[in-house]
């Protein structure tokens, strides 16, 4: 998809949406983003550009989003409350709109204690819900939080995140409903490894009418090794790998874990596509963006794309 289509157009149509993730580099090399974009172009409707993910310093998500868009992929700029007060957050939101970023994903962010600068001051002047609310205020009311008017309003699509698996389970659907009241139009979720639990969460959203007002995009990704599974469950906040899946991956010989993990990912996508109210998947391939087309192809969710890009053509696009 060219940026002219992008996430908004995809969500406006009724097809299954695919987004991916681009982690900006730890240096000033703009070609990293271009290379990642080449692997994804044509296979995803948009890609998120993370904001100092895990509280580790990277190229800014604003710069990364502009570079991604220049490389032909619609960008979803992530913006967290961790490092900026309400002045800087509004400033970056306005700046992103001026530079042509058409989607923003607004979240609280990981605590600095978990990243590469644990000595940093945690800001959290606003929380994720309030940041979504702020974005809606800029766009719909055309004012800053101070009340000062914006002559030209931003027009980005407003997204947020939710973790359906974190306790308290009973509150998680209501918490998304609250973010939708604040202004969220799409939500990308934490990794879904437990499809049944996820389906129960989506059912609650449907009951409350939330899925009519907010597109639910389920987070998925392949577990490539047992080490990675241990990392996901032990180190990444809020990720839950059910015991059944753990047994399945432990049950295959070591050299086949990667293939099995990929198969699980593809099956997960197919099952998610069958849940009413799920509008798409957000593929987090853990730095292996080149795997995204393969997963999309195997899941059969983009029949329109499947035949057109061969691995050779992809290789070409990368150069």
């Amino acid at each position: 998809m060219s940026p002219d289509g992008g996430l908004r157009a995809a969500l406006a149509s009724d097809r299954f949406v695919v987004t991916a993730e681009v982690g900006p580099p730890r240096d000033a090399d703009p070609d990293v983003i271009a290379r990642k974009a080449a692997a994804l172009r044509g296979w995803v409707d948009a890609a998120n550009v993370t904001d100092n993910q895990g509280a580790n310093v990277r190229m800014s998500s604003l710069a990364g989003s502009v570079l991604l868009r220049q490389a032909g992929v619609d960008a979803v700029m992530q913006l967290t409350c961790r490092d900026r007060n309400r002045i800087a957050l509004q400033s970056d939101l306005i700046g992103a709109a001026a530079l042509g970023v058409r989607n923003v994903l607004l979240l609280t962010g990981d605590h600095p204690a978990l990243g590469d600068h644990p000595d940093a001051k945690p800001v959290f002047d606003l929380d994720g819900v309030q940041l979504v609310w702020t974005a809606r205020t800029l766009r719909e009311e055309g004012t800053l939080l101070s009340g000062k008017p914006l002559a030209t309003r931003p027009s980005w699509l407003i997204g947020t995140v939710e973790n359906p698996f974190a306790p308290p389970a009973a509150l998680r659907a209501r918490r998304l409903a609250k973010k939708v009241a604040a202004g969220a139009e799409f939500v990308q979720t934490q990794y879904v490894f437990d499809v049944d639990a996820f389906a129960r969460w989506v059912a609650r959203l449907r009951d409350e009418g939330v899925t009519d007002r907010c597109a639910v995009i389920a987070g998925v990704g392949p577990i490539r090794s047992l080490r990675m599974m241990a990392f996901l469950t032990g180190q990444v906040p809020g990720v839950h790998v059910p015991a059944e899946l753990e047994r399945r991956l432990r049950g295959v010989p070591a050299h086949l874990v990667e293939e099995e993990g990929l198969a699980v990912c593809v099956e997960t996508i197919q099952r998610l596509a069958g849940i009413p109210g799920v509008r798409g998947v957000h593929l987090m391939a853990f730095g292996r963006d080149d795997e995204v087309p393969d997963i999309v192809r195997r899941a059969g969710i983009r029949p329109d794309r499947a035949p057109t890009l061969t691995p050779a053509a992809l290789q070409e696009g990368r150069q």
């Binding site: 609280t108 939710e162 306790p167």
Partner: peptide, 9 residues
């Protein structure tokens, strides 16, 4: 956070 738990619980 004033609006409920984060996703990291």
């Amino acid at each position: 956070l004033r609006n409920g738990p984060c996703g990291g619980v």
